[in-house]
């Protein structure tokens, strides 16, 4: 792999709550290579969105804090930047796509103006040039009649069209990295297919890297080169996508894959399930948190299992119970 574009090292993000500091992200490390797509998958509360917000300095304030770790983007540690410096990177070198386009767009401004703003803010161009570039972006994300649509307000567009506008804004300054947090979760399946196809096509044309955060393993399988599986604030497995789906090694990854009904699952059969649920943030044990969910007690709950590389690029949290080493 060439020099990674983004390197996250031992990141710990905590929230100041009434119960004290609780760690939503607990020593998470991964890399995103230039032009590649990294998927981060996990269930609600696993820390995948908090990880993304930590990278781009959008943690809820004043509760959210990065306690430890580095986020190296093109060699600079983003955790050390001032807000003003971060603003120059966000929307310029790093584009962001959120789940709900209606909250990402300003309801009282025309969409053309909102996209043009990206150019005015980051690229020192005239207003006229910025407006023209905005229309060009709308054309790029396949919005029909972009000159007319640029005059619309967000509420005049459908959900899919709004998400296209958000993508146009995220990509306006030709970023090196796009962070997409559940970009298609609120959309219908046929519209989701359009949006995923659009992101993939633009990635091919512009060569940016994508960090895609989702709970949907199907979306991951269709779009990602590499996958990070998070559980309870930690990475439990990380592998190239083809490898992960063919040879999942952590009990959580296996359980998750087995519990999804597929087209060829025998109809009306009882699905394999992962029993129980994720513990509350403040109750997380220091050791293996999947053992905690399975109701085990003993040594594995006390000490954090090592994160080891078992095949080229295939890493797994090696809890003696949850890591199926025997299958290797």
């Amino acid at each position: 792999m060439s020099e990674p574009l983004l390197q996250v090292r031992e990141l710990i993000t905590a929230f100041d709550t009434e119960a004290g500091l609780v760690r939503a992200v607990d020593q998470v490390s991964f890399e995103v290579a230039k032009g590649q797509t990294l998927g981060i998958v996990g269930e609600s509360g696993c820390g995948k969105s908090v990880t993304a917000m930590s990278l781009i300095g959008l943690l809820p304030q004043p509760m959210g804090k990065i306690l430890q770790g580095e986020v190296l983007f093109k060699g600079r540690d983003l955790t050390r930047l001032k807000n003003s410096e971060m603003r120059k990177i966000r929307g310029n070198e790093i584009g962001v796509i959120f789940q709900e386009p209606m909250t990402a767009l300003n309801p009282v401004h025309r969409i053309g103006k909102q996209i043009a703003e990206c150019f005015l803010l980051h690229k020192k161009v005239s207003k006229k040039k910025a407006w023209e570039s905005a229309i060009e972006m709308l054309r790029l994300v396949k919005i029909p009649a972009p000159e007319l649509r640029a005059m619309d307000y967000p509420h005049q567009l459908s959900g899919g069209m709004r998400q296209r506008v958000v993508i146009a804004m995220a990509l306006a300054c030709r970023p090196d990295l796009v962070i997409a947090d559940e970009p298609t979760t609120a959309l219908d399946v046929t519209v989701q297919a359009q949006i995923l196809d659009l992101i993939k096509r633009l990635q091919g044309e512009m060569g940016m890297a994508v960090m895609l955060i989702t709970h949907d393993l199907g979306v991951i399988a269709e779009t990602c080169d590499e996958v990070v599986v998070m559980y309870a604030g930690r990475v439990v497995e990380r592998a190239p996508a083809a490898e992960l789906f063919a040879r999942p090694l952590h009990a959580y990854t296996r359980g998750l894959l087995a519990s999804i009904p597929r087209m060829d699952t025998p109809r009306k059969s009882i699905l394999p399930v992962i029993p129980g649920m994720v513990a509350a943030l403040r109750d997380f044990v220091p050791g293996c948190r999947f053992c905690q969910r399975m109701g085990r007690d003993g040594a594995t709950l006390r000490e954090r299992p090592p994160f080891i590389q078992v095949a080229p690029g295939h890493w797994v949290e090696a809890c003696p119970i949850c890591y199926a080493a025997t299958e290797l």
Binding site: G159, G160, V189, D197, G218, I220, A221, A242
Partner: peptide, 25 residues
């Protein structure tokens, strides 16, 4: 047919043929 082809399945199969619909409902 379009709905079925749009379902992302949790397995890596890059040759899958998609029917991409234009527009919205």
């Amino acid at each position: 047919k379009a709905l079925l082809s749009a379902i992302p399945e949790p397995e890596v199969n890059r040759d899958k043929k998609r029917i991409l619909l234009e527009g919205d409902v």
